[in-house]
Design a protein around this nucleic acid. Structure first.
Lengths: 210, 210
DNA sequence: ACCTGAACACCGTTCAAGT
DNA sequence: ACCTGAACACCGTTCAAGT
């Protein structure tokens, strides 16, 4: 049994105290990380949760596991939010509102945004299911805006999430720039430019160009 | 004498061995950080540089000091690069090329991009002079593109650097997306949108606001 | 004035013993 | 099957002694 399976199974079954400890650790982690950031002491976390340090490691073998478990909740929130915004009269407002919520959500815990980038990449991650749902729900808003002619057809939604994730990483350091950077990313630095970005060193691996 | 002054003065004067140690530590830091990232062991750094750990701390009281010293060199490189590109026939290509170079430069050492964000903010930073020069040199390219009508007049260059810095942070985790994210940021998600981004305070149901 | 490295402190991680 | 916490390991930081 590897680390991921250990964390997953301990959540849903096993002994009664094991499940309680799992929930307790997760709730305490959210609380502590909100206060001190994602690099808070794991010893302090176990102490505050009232369990031995070994129990923490049994449930969440790595700090990354813990962060991904928290991200699961964030992604689920964002899925709901996206569904609420679906079918809005203004696809533009709907999508931008959701992207703002995305940044707000993953920025709440300092140091979490880096894990967003990781979970967007790693398909074997613990958060795979909720990340996929979130992406699907968000993509509906994206398609609505695209169908309204607001977004160029060649833009990929995953890249949008990555760019917003990047802004979130920066916003963790300087919260007050989040909105300005998102606005800039939406409008674009050179909105009217026709030529693509010059190829970086090697051949241009543009979208659709094979 | 505070930490910053200590680092600065030891660079330019004092004893001969002190100056040599300073240069040695800087060169070794670049080498080691290139290999292992900005979180490499400081003990390993001192050992490889052939000095005592105390000497490292005397010259660079914090890891941040060390990173900023390295960033100074990067910023100086980018200043030169900007001046080379100034007056180009295509302001668009000139600016985008420079922004690509920016990402490449600060991404070379994993973990450095976060310091970029810090130095853009902190005016008392060790790198203030070279950061200011870099910004001035880059802004010339920015103004040329703006004068050519490529960039909306209300865009602030500092925000452009922040956005590119954010992309660099993401690119450290996933190097191959740097170009696509920059392209997206230049073109914009919704290049033709007329309404601005919804006001930040007005965002509904922010998790932290409740 | 600067260098050195042992000593200290902190924190993450494991694992044998306990329930 | 799960929990516990002492023990270990690693690394950052300081500071008294040396040059």
């Amino acid at each position: 049994m590897d680390a991921k399976q250990a964390a997953r199974t301990s959540a849903q079954s096993g002994r009664k105290d094991a499940r309680r400890n799992h929930a307790r650790l997760l709730a305490t982690a959210r609380e502590l990380f909100l206060e001190q950031g994602a690099d808070a002491s794991l010893d302090a976390l176990a102490r505050r949760a009232g369990v031995g340090i070994g129990t923490l490691y049994r449930h969440f073998p790595t700090r990354q596991n813990l962060l991904e478990a928290l991200l699961t909740e964030s992604y689920d929130n964002l899925s709901s939010r996206a569904r609420e915004l679906t079918g809005s009269a203004s696809p533009e407002v709907a999508l931008t509102t959701w992207l703002q919520a995305f940044i707000t959500e993953v920025t709440e815990v300092r140091g979490m945004a880096a894990s967003v980038m990781a979970t967007l990449r790693d398909e074997r991650s613990e958060v795979f299911t909720s990340c996929t749902s979130m992406r699907a729900a968000g993509e509906v808003l994206f398609r609505e805006a695209q169908r309204a002619g607001l977004i160029p057809p060649e833009v990929e939604f995953l890249d949008v999430l990555r760019l917003v994730g990047a802004i979130a990483m920066a916003a963790e350091q300087e919260p007050d720039v989040a909105d300005r950077l998102l606005a800039l990313a939406l409008r674009g630095l050179m909105p009217g430019a026709e030529t693509p970005v010059p190829a970086a060193g090697a051949e241009a691996r543009g979208p659709g160009a094979g």
